[in-house]
Amino acid sequence: MASARNKKPCVKCPKNAGIATCGGCQAWFCTKHFIEHRQGLGEAMERIGQQHDDLHKDLDENNIGYSLLSQINAWEQTSLSRIQEVAEKARTDLARYIDEAKTQLAQSLNKIKNELASSRASDDFTEIELKQWNAQLEKLGRMLEKPPSIDIVEDDQSQSLIRIIQRKGI
């Protein structure tokens, strides 16, 4: 009788006595529930094995880093688009500046042309005026080669368009 009192009940059905202990969870089971418990453990083992096989397949197919590579490709396209936008704006601005400089040069040349024509027609000019016209033409020639108000510079104050990829510390 003493041995009957030391028996523990089955964790699944308290009315039946537990006759076997699971070495993992330390629970007591009757015969029927012990078999079910082992079947559940077997199914869990199968799921883990399948998960292992799936991961191994992904490793073999070189899927490691695919999402990171996708991010780099997207970053590259975005960066290229931004660079192209900035370059197009720079071209447009430069064309506008060149047109303005050409207009100013043309106006200055027309003024000199009119002065030359007037002075020629009246035969009323001196060496001083010739030197002034020559100096003005030389100055306009230098402006034609490189307009003084146009220069291409990099803006050190703005944020870089190109970002780098860095590895996080381990």
Rank of each mutant, 00 (worst) to 15 (best):
A20W: 01
D93F: 10
I64Q: 02
D99E: 14
K111C: 05
S118Q: 12
C10K: 05
A2N: 10
S160L: 11
V86A: 15
N134F: 01
A121C: 01
Q157L: 07
C30F: 02
G42Q: 13
S81V: 03
G169I: 07
H52V: 06
R96S: 12
P9Y: 02
S67H: 02
N134C: 00
L161I: 15
L140W: 04
I164N: 10
G42R: 12
C13L: 10
T78C: 04
Q39A: 13
Q132I: 12
R91Y: 03
I170F: 11
D155S: 08
S79K: 13
E138N: 03
I64M: 00
S79Y: 08
E43S: 05
C10H: 05
W133I: 01
I83A: 13
P148H: 11
D156W: 02
W28Y: 13
K102W: 06
Q107E: 15
S70M: 13
F125A: 07
L161P: 04
K32V: 09
I72H: 06
M143R: 14
D60Y: 00
S67L: 05
L161N: 09
N114A: 09
G65W: 00
D54L: 08
E145W: 00
Q51P: 00
S160P: 12
T103Y: 05
L140R: 04
P14D: 05
L80E: 09
Q166K: 13
C10D: 10
Q39N: 14
G169M: 07
D155P: 06
